[in-house]
Design a protein around this nucleic acid. Structure first.
Lengths: 190, 190
DNA sequence: CGATTTAGTTATACTCCATAACAATTCGTC
DNA sequence: GACGAATTGTTATGGAGTATAACTAAATCG
């Protein structure tokens, strides 16, 4: 889930494979054959609310209304960042590194709500893309200060523009006043 | 990510481990020792908006406002379902199976936006928990009709109550009128 | 009937992320 | 100032979720 980089662990008990009697009783596996290349990818674009489906309580929950909106926005958000090979967590990291001087890897992890080990991987990727550099921190020889490279600044600028365009496009059905209302209501939840 | 059971693939290029010069230059690994049991879990509860942090553009995007609200709701949502070992996708599946008679596994996959293979695992888990049963479908010996067991109905009823309580708790800061407004605005996005 | 499609399944692999352990360093406290 | 505790960055390992591809049995369509 991620998206912002949040934890949202959601792990719980594994549901290990179970033996089960199948409708058409199993028979021994044959060897490869390959007749039809299997029709294009499954599970493509996802419509969070199909007609002719009874969603029961799900339709009554504010949480699901938010979830649905988030799903719709998210897919397009990812697409708008794809040209730079930037994922949402990477975008968040770039913004945070850009705006918070002397940010340490541990700070980044805390802010984004991920484990330090995850932040290492994230920064590794950004460093390999030459967008971020680890610079020895002053006063602490254990730590790095994270900084954007020149390329990182350029990429962030371009990606930011794309993201803002995307956001404006998504919200264009709402007036400025309505957007303000939406923001205020969301902020008051929970 | 899931949560509702949505796809949201979000995969792209893997950021393979890179060689990197560390701040304190590496030395050979020693064997086990175990001194301190490492302080409680990292990446615990996540605050989507810390003070003293500059979030830059992120604070201006409607998409992030929604994302943040969703994150806050989600953690609590998961906790409210935990007593029954029900995850959000499992809850969605139970509701959908309950409300849509004669639902097939493939239908479930399509509605939830996951691959059929994923639906198999989901239904496997629910069947192992004795909440759902595969019943041979009429007129099609390939397919199952998914149905709730008596235990499944009881569990769904209890979990639904917990979920509704949770949702009401989250939205209690908003008047009925405001909740309606929020719903309407969310529906008009994208 | 034969070709194609569909439902359910399995195997495999990938991605993201957490936990745990660790070395080097810093901090707190006497 | 020395020593135990905490912190920083790191690696190894593994788990959960989901996708892709291939497959069997059955239905459908010409």
């Amino acid at each position: 889930m991620a998206g912002f980089g949040a934890a949202i662990p959601f792990s719980m008990s594994a549901s290990s494979r179970s033996s089960r009697s199948s409708p058409s009783s199993r028979s021994p596996r044959k060897t490869r054959d390959t007749l039809a290349p299997d029709p294009a990818t499954e599970a493509g674009g996802f419509d969070p609310h199909l007609p002719d489906v009874d969603y029961g309580v799900l339709d009554n929950l504010i949480g699901y209304a938010i979830r649905r909106a988030q799903i719709r926005l998210y897919e397009d958000f990812v697409r708008s960042l794809a040209p730079w090979n930037i994922t949402p967590p990477r975008f968040s990291a770039l913004v945070l590194i850009s705006r918070n001087p002397d940010l340490k890897l541990t700070d980044l992890a805390r802010i984004m709500g991920i484990a330090r080990s995850g932040a290492v991987l994230l920064v590794d990727a950004l460093e390999e893309m030459k967008l971020v550099a680890r610079r020895p921190a002053e006063n602490d020889r254990r730590a790095f200060s994270l900084v954007l490279t020149a390329a990182g600044r350029r990429t962030l600028e371009a990606a930011t523009e794309a993201v803002c365009d995307h956001d404006a496009k998504m919200a264009r059905a709402l007036s400025a006043q309505e957007q303000q209302t939406l923001r205020a209501l969301l902020a008051r939840l929970a």
